[in-house]
Design a protein around this nucleic acid. Structure first.
Lengths: 232, 232
DNA sequence: CGAGACGTACGTACGTTGTACGTCCGGCGT
DNA sequence: ACGCCGGACGTACAACGTACGTACGTCTCG
């Protein structure tokens, strides 16, 4: 029945610790990494089990020994990326600086993994790493002297803003990719009755300094929190 | 060659304005609506052209007379949902109230179309309806007396927070759906060295009052904006 | 009033996707 | 020495998005 496979198989399979290729052992981590590389290269829609497999020079079904299904792989990607957030924290620094650093770290992740971010935002991370940002945020809230409930709310507000700016960052990246760098042109042909302010501020809308926009909103939150901290 | 189709076809097709079914004419809008209904019922992954077609009692390829491809359908969904945001605005009200209403409207959309929201967040809306929230936000910023660049930044900060809370809302909804209502239990088995604050605040973390959380963060932004408005 | 152009619904068909299942093999415990 | 077991692999299938060709209504123009 099967007479064609053995000679072909023996040429690729059996090497354990021998000559030519000696592939470095399939691993969940290697799979996740390859998937992320694929997404960053060709976008999230281009991710398929088959492409991950060929990228690793492995048969498709071998992946399923380390990942139960594609959804789990996506969650693994989300966790991996979320884990790359730099949460270095200096407890001796003033708490507003620490809060800023925390939110900036989220923004940096949006810059480091732009295409993978949509995966991160649409999949839960139910391992402890998903709670690490919350832990840091609660730490600085405690340093600010907030009580329990207020600390939790402050943390959620900061993280909500962090996530919101991440989404914004992704969107402008995608938009700039799709249409070739014509930022404020399209505002011209809007209905002047419905969009008076947008048209009036077209120059300001067109110019994009995401860094400054981000810092502006972050300043709003921090100063408001400072106000609330000193008033108690 | 083809002798089986005509008798079957005549039973369903030719009715123009006649008796039994008289289907109400396929339309891009009806397609989008059916797709949204499907997503809200079974989740975004359950959306397929075939399912939309059978839901409308239509052949699959008929959809392509009104929608170029699935991606365009998803963008149509995003636009349709974004258009459902209630942007009623009372220009005579104090601007902080107007700003609050605008952000609350975004949050309401997350509540009205929970499953569709991930589609909205991951697809651009490049029609004018995508700019309507920006227009309203710029209007209230102008009412607050901000100059051009500051108005744009304030708008972006508010919308970023709105989007961030939307993501948060989706996440908690999905999480509660997947595991059956055990909110603060999992904090127990965390490493106490890495998550001291999370564990200490486990009760506050577990209790979820998204409304209050949302209003807290919104208050932060608004009071900070009020501060900045009066100081100029 | 006839004929053609057109829009829309439809069936068939192809390539790609996720993954269930069975087989095979090399290293390890007994 | 032998058997077990985990991981790699090939085959197979259902469901997907959609390109293409066809058939039939309606509307327009002569």
């Amino acid at each position: 029945m099967n007479d064609a496979t053995p000679p072909a198989a023996t040429s690729t399979a059996p090497v354990a610790s021998e000559d030519p290729p000696a592939r470095p052992a399939l691993t969940r981590d290697r799979i996740v990494r390859a998937a992320i590389a694929l997404i960053e290269a060709d976008g999230p829609d281009a991710l398929s089990m088959r492409r991950v497999a060929t990228a690793l020079d492995v048969a498709v079904m071998s992946l399923y020994n380390h990942v139960p299904n594609k959804k789990a792989l996506l969650e693994g990607i989300a966790e991996h990326v979320a884990n790359r957030i730099d949460l270095a924290d200096d407890p001796s620094a003033p708490w507003p600086d620490r809060a800023r650093a925390l939110v900036r770290a989220h923004r940096k992740m949006a810059h480091d993994f732009p295409r993978s971010l949509t995966v991160v935002l649409t999949h839960k991370v139910d391992t402890p790493v998903g709670l690490r940002p919350a832990e840091r945020a609660l730490a600085v809230a405690a340093a600010a002297g907030f009580d329990g409930p207020t600390s939790v709310r402050a943390m959620r507000a900061l993280l909500a803003y962090a996530v919101g700016t991440q989404v914004r960052e992704v969107r402008i990246a995608e938009t700039f990719a799709h249409l070739g760098a014509a930022p404020g042109e399209s505002f011209a042909k809007l209905d002047p009755d419905e969009f008076p302010h947008v048209i009036a501020l077209a120059p300001e809308m067109g110019e994009n300094d995401p860094e400054a926009d981000f810092e502006f909103g972050l300043d709003l939150l921090i100063t408001a929190l400072e106000l609330r901290a000193t008033s108690t």
